[in-house]
Design a protein around this nucleic acid. Structure first.
Lengths: 210, 210
DNA sequence: TGGTGTGAACAACTTCACAGCG
DNA sequence: CGCTGTGAAGTTGTTCACACCA
């Protein structure tokens, strides 16, 4: 185990390993070698060994990794041994779909608040049972619900403004669905989910190789 | 201009430059230096010069880049000088939200077909006016609508199966919203939009640095 | 003069290859 | 013996620094 810097890509792969290990667990596989797991994940086996070795010695030489143990360790590394409280900002089509989406809940992400600035939406109850709050009440609601991650699903033109509110309320992490680079101070994290960029990549490949 | 291999990250950045240039155009800015554009995009200026230099000499020494011209060239590179036809597969909450989402249309991506395998949904008309087709009719519908990119918004358990149908129908590009690695043969492209991975990254940072 | 285009230096990440251990 | 853990080698991507040109 070393304390050198962890590549960002390593964290992303850990997330992928975690999902695959969950599948293996469901298939009742007890032990897996880095070689086999690598094949499943489409990466190099040394990559897997190196990725997990950043954090400890979780394997058994001559044997492989115990699926249950490795899964547990990876989840601990990622911080998935607890539930995380999300707040949705921007209750449009996409936002509503996200609240209803199963993938959040399954991994322990839970929407505890929802915000909008449209007076027609404020006070309404969503299908999930959540009440839509005014964005001005963010701090107050945060104190009550312990919001840990903000999910921004407003139009691009409003996204930075929303981010500023989240920063003000000291929400340290944001998942941004708007196609724009959000500026945050040190100590805050933003992850972008930008499907236009992905589509542009596909268009490029179709144009170039097709 | 050189024909060495283009880093994947370059394409992703071109997409970002394109958006920023569109904003600059709207602000009526005529010329911009790599330095200024870099600041806006949060990257190094040499990076920008190198990225665009892979494809040609679009700048003017001592001046910078003409916004309109560079935007045009980048869009041509990415293949955004045409409209792209999308087919949505999986009409759940997320799928419906995607069809209604403005960001696709604005960049020239247009949904021309929608598929599901739920008998209750087939034949129904979506808000956009699209009729939901049977996935078995994919080839037939493709012949009519010229589907170029498939958008997969089914549960993870069905995603590979859907991908196989798309491959069979020779839809060469897929945007996958299911949290799973999709396997495709050479010549096909997949881009993943996976928010659980992004959330795991945020959770990791909150756990580690927070 | 000022900013591009680019070889060369650098940094980061990935893969190899094998020592070491269960 | 077999598979992990890891230094070393290799590869890829980024930044520097400056020649060159409008």
């Amino acid at each position: 185990m070393k304390f050198s810097k962890i590549p960002a890509a390593t964290i992303t792969r850990l997330s992928m390993y975690s999902r695959n290990l969950e599948e293996l667990l469901a298939e009742d596989v007890k032990v897996i070698s880095s070689e086999k797991l690598a094949e499943r994940c489409g990466v190099n086996s040394a990559q897997i060994r190196k990725d997990v070795a950043y954090f400890g010695e979780f394997g058994v030489r001559g044997v492989g990794y115990y699926v249950r143990d490795l899964l547990f360790e990876i989840k601990k590394i990622l911080g998935l041994n607890k539930e995380w409280n999300l707040a949705l900002v921007g209750i449009g089509n996409l936002g509503s779909a996200l609240i209803a989406h199963e993938n959040f809940a399954r991994q322990g992400y839970r929407f505890v608040a929802a915000f909008d600035n449209d007076p027609h939406k404020i006070g309404k109850k969503l299908l999930s049972g959540l009440l839509v709050d005014r964005i001005d009440d963010l701090k107050k609601v945060k104190a009550r619900c312990n919001i840990e991650i903000g999910v921004i699903s407003t139009p691009a033109s409003k996204a930075q403004e929303v981010a500023n509110r989240l920063i003000e309320a000291d929400v340290r992490a944001m998942l941004n669905f708007a196609p724009i680079q959000i500026q945050v101070p040190k100590g805050f994290s933003v992850e972008n989910v930008d499907f236009t960029v992905k589509l542009d990549n596909l268009a490029y490949h179709l144009t170039t190789e097709g």
